[in-house]
Amino acid sequence: MTTRIGLVGAGFIAGRHVDALSSIDGVTVAGIADPRADRAEVLAARAGAAAYAHWADLLDVERLDALYVCVPPHAHGEVETAAVERGLPLFVEKPLATDLATAEALADRIDAAGLLTAVGYHWRYLDTLELARDLLAGAPARMVLGAWLDRAPRVDWWARQDGSGGQTVEQATHLFDVARVLVGEVEGGWATGSRSPDGPGDILDVCTAALRFESGAVGSFSNSCLLPRAHRIGVELVAPGLGLWLTEHRLVVTDADGERVVDRDVDPFEAEDRAFVAAVRGEGHDVRAPYREALRTHRLAVAVAQAAADGGTVQL
């Protein structure tokens, strides 16, 4: 039986999902909605799907088995609520929202409905992340250092606080998610940020945090969008006798044997989509970041961003 999927949003990340979904047997991308009709049409044509200007029309017209919500951070809320009311399994892109309240409310609705959900923390599907976790099983991390030093993406909402929630919430959230998987929950800490006179939009263009984990490990997370290109994006872990540097593409392992580079074998977008589709079909249980779990990462990212803006303590 064909699994029919709808997408809300036709931006960059929606395109990645359309490509991944198209490679899965028995999946049809039935419809794509985007308020920019031209964009919806281009992506719909690529997927052989129907294009919609409004997501409500997509939900009313198409018979769907699941919905992908790939909207900008500020646009979360209504569409998820509508999907929950229809009992539609949801794949939601990160960040869950620009703020915490929207996501908390949605998590409660989703739980009440007992809905299947997945969130696009795709680093969780990296085989290299699994290798890192195996290596750390014998020697837990004492320190984790995350860095997202990049340029500002050139979409209009990104550099506005009310559009994206800021870089910590929109991008560095992946680093917090990886840290939670590999080191566990954060207990608290400190954060600070700054904004340069010529920086883009109104967001903090640098932010850095010093965090304490429940395991006793400590770490720092830094992000900046002031650079001309992606400069350094990844998570470094330090354990007794072991150093790890995980990026979206590879893992560098340094131990008593020296240094070795392990390239990823898995396309994490494809893997997360396969896992979600299998769960929708009742054929698999490998959704690694359901909404409630992703909410914990979002909560951490929002707490760090707030502490950085208000000059102080990270409170969870």
Partner: peptide, 11 residues
């Protein structure tokens, strides 16, 4: 702003 980290557990 900045952060400076230290660890002494490596080989």
């Amino acid at each position: 702003v900045g952060s400076i980290s230290s660890a002494r557990v490596l080989g």
